[in-house]
């Protein structure tokens, strides 16, 4: 059987739930976007900050005033909590955002490439009142900033 036949067979077999592109990618015929950087499942499954950092391959962090985490003191709606992380630490290459009391601790990881500024904003879900933890990796060292957000109405069911 030629390689092409084999791929065709794989296509037919996997055709049901998969898109054509995904099947082709699985057969090595197309570059998969997801293959560029695999989604770190073990990190996103982490249940606390220490476990999550370990899964990310990041050392334990020390608090730094040069890492600025901006969150509201009180969030009426836990489904939409605005968060900004800005690092003034030279050589910041990675930022991570965690919520201690969410079912899974890790919310997001940002890779700060050389021309990017270590300043990102997003909106996150919080199940309940919790510490929000920002992590920065700068010059190979690990820094954190922590702030508590009081959540009036949890946003986990959304």
């Amino acid at each position: 059987m030629t390689a092409l036949d084999e791929n065709r067979r794989k296509l037919l077999k996997t055709g049901g739930g998969w898109s054509l592109a995904a099947a082709l990618a699985a057969a090595g015929m197309l570059p998969s976007r997801a293959a560029l950087a695999d989604w770190n499942k073990s990190a996103f499954d982490g249940k606390n900050v220490a476990e999550t950092l370990k899964a990310l391959g990041i050392e334990p962090a020390t608090a730094s005033a040069s890492l600025v985490l901006t969150v509201p003191d009180i969030a009426d709606n836990g489904a939409v909590v605005p968060v900004q992380i800005a690092s003034r630490l030279a050589g910041t290459t990675r930022l991570a955002l965690m919520v201690e009391k969410n079912p899974n601790t890790l919310t997001a990881v940002f890779e700060i490439l050389p021309d990017a500024v270590a300043d990102v904003s997003t909106r996150i879900k919080m199940a309940q009142t919790s510490n929000v933890v920002a992590i920065a990796v700068a010059d190979g060292k690990v820094y954190s900033a922590t702030k508590e957000v009081k959540v009036t109405l949890g946003g986990c069911g959304t």
């Binding site: 770190n40 939409v80 997001a108 909106r123 879900k125």
Partner: peptide, 18 residues
Amino acid sequence: VMTAQWGPSVSKNPYFAF
């Protein structure tokens, strides 16, 4: 210039600024 990995605790209809 930037890549990110997200989990399901980013809000619905995500906002992202960089």
